[in-house]
Amino acid sequence: MFKNPVGISKNLWGYRQLIKDLTFREVASRYKGSVLGILWSFITPLLMLVVYTFVFSEVFNSKWNAASNSKIEFAIILFCGLVTFNIFGDVVSRAPSLILNNSNYVKKVVFPLEILPVVALGSALINSLISMGLLILFIGLFMGAIHWTLIFVPIVLCPLLLLAVGLGWFLSALGVYLRDIAQVVTIAVQALMLLTPIFYPATLIPKDLLFLYFLNPVGYVVENMRKVMIWGQTPEWGTLGVEMLIGVIVFFVGYIWFQKTRPGFADVI
């Protein structure tokens, strides 16, 4: 049992080659047998972008700000939020079934089950990197500049990655004992996506509901990602510090929960 996040990170680093191999195998298996293969990683986000942009900017006539009627700008802002949230949503949505879907590893004493949520995160990151590449291309083509503040993207994403892995450990262990949690998590992730300022600016949130925004750590990450990627601004360092603290706590608690409940996996499965 590791007593601190640094020890946990060192343990995971020791399995880095196994994590890398499993991550690429998972990405490859996702598109195995399909005609277009890895091209779906490009096509899927583009289709999502077109659909969401049409629904919100054409059907609902949504605008990001009153000074601009640009549908392309709206699409880029929306896409940035979606790409960021999907990293978190993909890992958390899959988490309750991770151990159950890899039950063949459970009785292998030497296999480090704790890497499975990390592998899920790695797979989500590969897909998101493709989407981010498209996003940067769109920003350069349609907004006229690619900002130097892109260097802050890894720092801004760090709390979200810690949060995703920590919740991944917690939910993957809980999913072994409580199978219904998968359905609950699916609904919760969809609700969280709508409560996060992805399709609308945070300024439109009614004052009596602002507490929902302040309690949502994903919302801060989405806003900071737009700052550094689209607007060329530095992150909001105060909120970034709070996000990092929350991420480290969830990361640590999730790992401890996973290791405490792990001995019973084989009996339940």
Rank of each mutant, 00 (worst) to 15 (best):
K227M: 13
K207H: 12
Y220W: 13
M225R: 06
W231H: 08
G254H: 02
L245Y: 00
F211S: 08
E236I: 01
I205S: 02
T234V: 14
N224F: 03
L240P: 04
R262C: 11
T203S: 15
D208M: 05
D267I: 05
T203D: 12
I246Q: 06
E223H: 01
N224Q: 13
W257S: 15
E223F: 04
W237F: 15
D267N: 10
D267C: 14
N224P: 00
E223D: 15
P201H: 04
V221K: 03
L204A: 11
P206F: 05
I256V: 15
I256S: 07
P201R: 10
G232T: 02
I249Y: 03
L215S: 13
Y200W: 12
M244K: 01
Q233H: 02
V221T: 14
Y255D: 04
E243C: 13
G219K: 05
L215E: 00
R226Y: 06
A202F: 09
W237K: 02
P217E: 05
K207N: 14
K207S: 14
M244R: 01
E236R: 05
F251Q: 07
I230M: 03
Y200T: 06
E236H: 10
K260S: 09
N224V: 03
V242H: 00
K227G: 08
N224G: 10
V250L: 10
V253F: 05
F251C: 12
F251K: 06
W257P: 00
Y220D: 13
T261H: 13
T239M: 11
T239C: 02
F211P: 07
L209V: 03
D208W: 07
L210H: 14
D208H: 10
K207A: 09
F251Y: 15
V221R: 06
E236M: 12
G219W: 02
Y200I: 09
V228K: 07
I256K: 15
G232S: 08
I205V: 14
P217C: 11
G247N: 07
F258D: 10
Y255L: 10
L210A: 09
T261S: 11
F251T: 04
D208Q: 07
E236W: 07
P201M: 12
G238I: 08
K260L: 14
G254D: 04
L215M: 13
N224Y: 00
V242L: 14
T234N: 08
W237G: 04
E243H: 00
M225G: 07
V222I: 13
A202N: 10
E223Y: 05
G241C: 08
L212A: 04
R226F: 11
M244N: 09
D208K: 06
F251D: 08
V248A: 13
Q259F: 02
L212C: 04
P235G: 06
G241N: 08
R262S: 14
G219T: 06
